[in-house]
């Protein structure tokens, strides 16, 4: 894509770019090095700050936390797919009595911060849901309403001729949607659904606030303990874990997207969902 902005460089431009590369590389290295030196000289990442890795109990607690994280994300996404499917169909309904409430629900949950939802469910229903339940419910409602928009865009993106032909041979609307539109839409939406998994996985970290036992909450116990008092090494560890998982998921979504595009099939991009309200971007 960079080719939009400049031609393939000739010999003189290549030499110039090499000079920029050396200078730029030194500047970048200098900034990263200065940050690293600052961390090191203040003793924030010195060897003993990492010693929690030598405690089998702590590593085990972290791994169990990771399991809870994945469990929460998987549960939330699974439920969100159902929620999204129901409300996407609701928003496309011919009956105003179904269409309007669905629209209100979807827009409401898209516009409300996830943390506000989590805290609300935690304060209002903690006795019945527990912290884990509150986290999963909030994530389900938020991701479900985002998925509803993705599904709706996917159904609308199937060429008009498909539904016209289905109606012409006498199918009812339910049949058209379930037999003709949905099977064609699902493939185009797969990348967007996987990207939404990344969002859900990242948002499970909000369980930190209500203590739902996921990995960030477990990690808090480490850096809060006076023995370690090491927020920076712990945060780096957490970031590394999330980056590995989310980066692989994003790569998977990208390769699926490329495969669909190569076959000339439609791909629903989250950015295509009109910014009317709430976020289409996985943030």
């Amino acid at each position: 894509m960079s080719q939009v902005l400049y031609d393939v460089p000739g010999p003189r431009a290549i030499a110039r770019h090499r000079l920029y590369a050396v200078v730029g590389g030194l500047v970048v290295l200098g900034i990263v090095g200065a940050a690293g030196w600052k961390l090191w000289s203040e003793g924030a990442i010195s060897g003993n700050k990492w010693s929690f890795f030598e405690e089998p109990q702590i590593v085990e607690a972290l791994l169990e936390g990771l399991l809870v994280t994945i469990e929460a994300a998987a549960l939330a996404i699974g439920l969100a797919v159902v929620f999204g499917a129901v409300f996407a169909v609701g928003r496309l309904s011919d009956h105003a009595l179904i269409r309007w409430p669905s629209t209100v629900v979807v827009q409401f949950f898209r516009a409300t911060p996830v943390l506000l939802l989590i805290l609300f469910f935690f304060f209002a229903y903690a006795s019945r849901l527990g912290a884990f339940g509150a986290l999963v419910l909030a994530l389900t409602l938020y991701n479900g309403s985002v998925l509803a928009e993705i599904f709706r865009a996917g159904l609308l993106a199937v060429p008009r001729g498909q539904s016209e032909a289905a109606y012409a041979i006498g199918m009812r609307k339910t049949q058209v949607t379930t037999l003709v539109l949905a099977p064609q839409a699902v493939r185009s939406m797969l990348p967007a659904i996987i990207s939404q998994c990344v969002v859900a996985l990242k948002d499970t970290a909000l369980g930190y606030v209500i203590g739902s036992g996921e990995i960030v909450y477990e990690a808090k116990q480490i850096f809060r303990s006076p023995v370690y008092n090491n927020p920076i090494p712990v945060a780096i560890t957490l970031a590394a874990v999330f980056i590995v998982i989310n980066y692989s998921l994003s790569k998977l979504a990208q390769s699926l997207e490329r495969r669909l595009a190569r076959r000339g099939e439609r791909v629903i991009q989250t950015e295509q969902i009109e910014s009317g309200m709430g976020t289409g971007t996985p943030l």
Partner: peptide, 28 residues
């Protein structure tokens, strides 16, 4: 940019911060 180190820096910045939960950033 046509300069490789800048490109590498930009790409790694995006990959690191886009995949890290905001809560972890706040902790840091």
């Amino acid at each position: 940019s046509p300069v490789a180190p800048f490109r590498a820096f930009g790409t790694s910045y995006v990959n690191v911060f886009r995949n890290t939960p905001l809560v972890v950033m706040f902790i840091f």
